[in-house]
């Protein structure tokens, strides 16, 4: 009996180690942008805080306003479109405000204010898609839109844990809940339209278009001389409509270019991104790390099968011994 014991321990140890994915801590390859990826460029310097995007978003997606008795009584209305202080299961996009000191000048870090529109970033390498155990969240191979299938979803909320931007929302207030997130109005895109928020944005702060072209547009804006006039496209890059505005002093970086592997929702601002609640994130997604660990451990199921073989042998021998004892 002792002859095999050491050997067994070795097999066991090797199997355990491999199973747990020690062999590497490096993330897998970065994922690439789908060929016809569409996205939104949000330019905070153009945003005037009119919230038309919030209203249109609810209209287009058939979502209710926020019902808050106190607010409703004070305004004598029912269901407030821009109610709620954050993204939630009834709000797919939200204009938030950065304030400092006297809040007197727009797009200034000190004594200024700035707007930021929060919505799904449509990551190129989305954690939520990697996390979902039932493929309820998928990334469209053509448009790159991160979409949700309630028919598959079991409501485990792992996507919420995984998302670095806290985007997927869950209907905690419903007996039969769903996950709610921005799907870039894919039902509108199917009809040849554009996302509601971009459609109605009066200044072009929310601009729809192919991600690569949006990226070029964003770079052009950063390069433009602050103080000069610039013809900003409105609604979508292809709309042909423009509005002239004065170029602000942009932060010379496009938020979403690299964050967590890159996103299809890009942001420009004159106020540092951290002040707008946009976190500094690593260039590789957490999903790439966790997938690498997992796939190393379970590569071809070799490790688990080897381990199982060893275990079967050991258990068989032990139980046999038991019954003969």
């Amino acid at each position: 009996m002792n002859i095999d014991r050491k050997q067994f321990f070795k097999v066991l140890a090797a199997g355990t180690v491999a199973t747990s994915g020690v062999s590497t801590l490096f993330a897998r390859e970065r994922k690439l942008l789908p060929k016809n990826a569409v996205g939104i460029l949000y330019d905070a310097t153009l945003c005037i805080g009119c919230k038309s995007c919030e209203v249109e978003c609810k209209k287009v997606n058939g979502m209710s306003g926020v019902f808050d008795t106190k607010l409703e009584q004070s305004h004598n209305v029912s269901g407030i479109w821009d109610g709620g202080n954050d993204l939630d299961s009834k709000t797919l996009n939200k204009i938030k405000m950065y304030r400092n000191g006297t809040s007197s000048t727009k797009d200034k870090e000190t004594n200024g204010y700035a707007f930021i529109k929060r919505a799904c970033m449509h990551c190129i390498d989305p954690n939520c898609v990697s996390a979902c155990p039932v493929t309820a969240l998928t990334k469209d191979p053509i448009t790159g839109i991160v979409q949700y299938d309630k028919g598959a979803c079991i409501g485990c909320r792992y996507c919420q844990v995984a998302c670095p931007f806290n985007i997927p929302k869950f209907e905690f207030d419903k007996a039969l809940p769903e996950i709610v997130k921005c799907e870039m109005c894919k039902h509108q895109l199917d009809k040849g339209g554009i996302p509601g928020c971009c459609d109605v944005c009066p200044t072009g702060a929310s601009l729809f278009g192919p991600v690569e072209k949006l990226m070029k547009e964003a770079r052009r804006r950063i390069k433009a001389q602050p103080g000069t006039k610039y013809r900003y496209p409105v609604s979508s890059l292809e709309s042909g409509e423009t509005q002239t505005h004065t170029v602000q002093k942009y932060i010379s970086y496009i938020y979403g270019e690299k964050e967590t592997g890159g996103t299809q929702y890009l942001i420009l601002s004159a106020v540092p991104y951290e002040k707008l609640g946009l976190l500094k994130l690593p260039e590789k997604s957490a999903a790439s790390t966790s997938e690498k660990i997992q796939h190393t451990a379970y590569k071809g199921m070799i490790a688990p099968v080897v381990l199982l073989g060893g275990l079967l042998y050991a258990a068989h021998r032990s139980t046999k011994q038991d019954s003969t004892e």
Binding site: M97, S103, G277
Partner: peptide, 12 residues
């Protein structure tokens, strides 16, 4: 922007 209270803060 008035009233500024009509907008949620970055961190609510």
């Amino acid at each position: 922007v008035t009233p500024p209270a009509g907008f949620p803060n970055i961190n609510e």
